[in-house]
Design a protein around this nucleic acid. Structure first.
Lengths: 366, 366
DNA sequence: CCGGATCGTTAATGCGTATTAGTAATGCGC
DNA sequence: GCGCATTACTAATACGCATTAACGATCCGG
């Protein structure tokens, strides 16, 4: 019987024995007189299964302290088959020089929630070639190094995004995105929030309310209009096209005449949507000021969102706040669920009602 | 001869085959019809030794693209290789709710420079138990997953920081930190910048200049004083204790009388340091206003840094700007050098001189 | 006093990648 | 046609830790 000749042992050369490297579990085990597995069990504080005697535990912990052992996170993560890393991808720089367009408020929540769940964050910037070297058309692939990835802004190419989803890679988009089949997202509940503002106005006694919105098909705009109309309907107030003023250039189209016309028609409250530019609110605000309206005594104003920075020092508008940190946190929650193989969580986050000072009871009828 | 009975095979249960996991090198190898080792060689772009035919290389790269393969960072690290990840550790949250204390300006530069060098960033937040489960006293240890780590703020425990350094892990601290032997850091060159401000004032004709500083031993304060005195010396102006007004509570101690006294003594220019609170500048500003000084006609003022937010709408103070984004970029450059096994780069970053409008020629002598 | 249950520990294995010794195939000179 | 060098690739490790089947010891009830 011929024994197959044992091949020599290839592989890496053993580390130079001279160097004092940091201690391993094996050395802790040797010092404590137990096996490496026992050390791992003691340190792991695992859920169940293994039981360790108090004496052994003490010996191991003593050895750990005396050697100054610290676990190697790379090995832990490899063995545990999870990196505990969540990606955050933004096509433009995550930290733009122009702070105006920054994702900062979202990141506040993202970081908190991720930390609370034991995840670290990996930042990917779309514009750069980045880490793994996978540049060009497959730049999105880099994110696969994480356990899942959050996408900020709508600049990530749809096909690549869907490819990730199709491959079963956990992905969550921050901001409503239901045009992409299968893509999980979280977004603010503009419908409910807008409805709540109308309900509030109706509760103050307003019977004719007009919405000023820009000419835009974005979900953020149409959602607000839906909520607005829904609020009118539930309050039994007149809806229909007359209740919505839609203009591509509200600052120009929302004239003093038009405003006076509405007032003469019995309109007592006006609602503007929030947009990037804040034009709707600015136009409404400007026209009201020009006509000499004493707000909220002559008429009430409300804003479906936050005022633009240049108007932020005026009176606080009645309306709602977009809960950006909460949106970030919700996105992380959903992503964590997907990573764990669970169902996506609730995508809509409620906006907080902001009482403000621009809405009051309607003026007494003449 | 009794063959020792072969033990059954313990170990982990194989992963549930159903889940589509991220592709491994083994799968790439299978698809390309080569061995896993070949895949590693192709992707590694190693120094020398192995030669790979162009055809094989192409097959492997095709398979990589088609599967969307990305190397596992933990496995790379464990196998003693790079993973192109740089850590960013802040003991407090990286994105605090209070934007005032944020590291944002630094991160702008950090992100840019890291992207330019092909690194992705991993955010480690110290306050949480975080990633690998290394809680409590070993929270810092998580950063070993990356190739190196940047530390923000001075809250990271010194012993753990030094432990990382001692173990040869590349670490850079953002902010001067020479009290910790062996720790690499980058910081702003307050000495040169402060000197430059004095030189500017001297060039305008000022012969007696006073520095107002808080009672603080921080490097940021003492550096400014050094630079200030150095500037006086080089300009041949009187230095010494009389040129520096030091107070724990400048707003209270910097009285109108004191200011008038200085003016009577021929002092024509005043310099304040920047601190967290901005108290020195606020006190100087306030006293000058109270005394009725017409700045810069009656006297010149300068600020060694940026004004506090509440005074940011006043006239732009003559002084210098702390180049936070550049500091972040410089820190990344140094970290990249350390990761590559090179010497640390220059730790000091120059501050930009800010002309401002609060300094002019001294008033004509009576 | 024997079969079974419980407890404490260990041997063996896997996680995914990098490295290196070895090998088969080919080219080269004489 | 025979060594020897070169090329192209693969097998077999190692990295450090987590997991789990198996095993010895002790305890227990009948």
């Amino acid at each position: 019987m011929e024994e197959p000749r044992k091949r020599a042992r290839p592989g890496r050369t053993p580390a130079p024995t001279g160097r004092t490297s940091r201690p391993r579990q094996a050395e802790v085990a040797r010092l404590a007189g137990v096996s490496q597995a026992t050390v791992s069990l003691v340190l792991g504080a695992r859920k169940q299964g293994a039981t360790i005697s108090e004496e052994t535990r003490r010996k191991v912990l003593d050895a750990v302290r005396s050697l100054g052992y610290v676990p190697d996170p790379a090995a832990s993560r490899l063995a545990a088959a999870r990196n505990n890393l969540l990606g955050v991808f933004s096509f433009t720089s995550t930290f733009p020089t122009d702070v105006q367009h920054s994702y900062y408020p979202f990141l506040v929540g993202v970081e908190q929630e991720a930390a609370a769940r034991g995840y670290d964050l990996v930042l990917f910037t779309g514009s750069s070639t980045g880490g793994a070297g996978a540049a060009g058309p497959h730049a999105l692939n880099r994110v696969r190094l994480a356990d899942g990835c959050l996408f900020l802004g709508r600049h990530a190419p749809a096909d690549e995004l869907l490819r990730l989803v199709a491959d079963g890679f956990p992905v969550v988009h921050l901001g409503r995105r239901d045009e992409l089949e299968g893509l999980a997202w979280v977004g603010a509940d503009y419908v409910s929030a807008s409805k709540e503002v109308v309900t509030h106005l109706a509760g103050l006694g307003h019977r004719r309310i007009v919405l000023v919105r820009e000419d835009d098909e974005a979900a953020a705009s149409t959602d607000r209009e839906h909520g607005f109309l829904k609020g009118l309907e539930e309050a039994g107030l007149p809806g229909g096209p007359a209740a919505v003023f839609r203009s591509a250039d509200p600052e120009h189209d929302l004239t003093a005449e038009r405003l006076r016309g509405w007032l003469d028609d019995g309109v007592t409250a006006f609602v503007a949507e929030e947009t990037d530019t804040g034009d709707a609110w600015r136009a409404l605000h400007g026209a009201a000021h020009f006509v000499g309206i004493d707000c909220p005594n002559d008429a009430s104003l409300a804003l479906l969102g936050s005022p633009p920075p240049d108007l932020s020092d005026g009176p606080t508008p009645t309306g709602f706040d977009i809960p950006r940190p909460q949106l970030g946190a919700a996105a992380v929650r959903m992503l964590a669920a997907l990573v764990a193989g669970e169902q996506a969580t609730e995508p809509l986050v409620a906006c907080g009602f902001r009482p403000g000072t621009t809405a009051g009871t309607p003026p007494a009828r003449l």
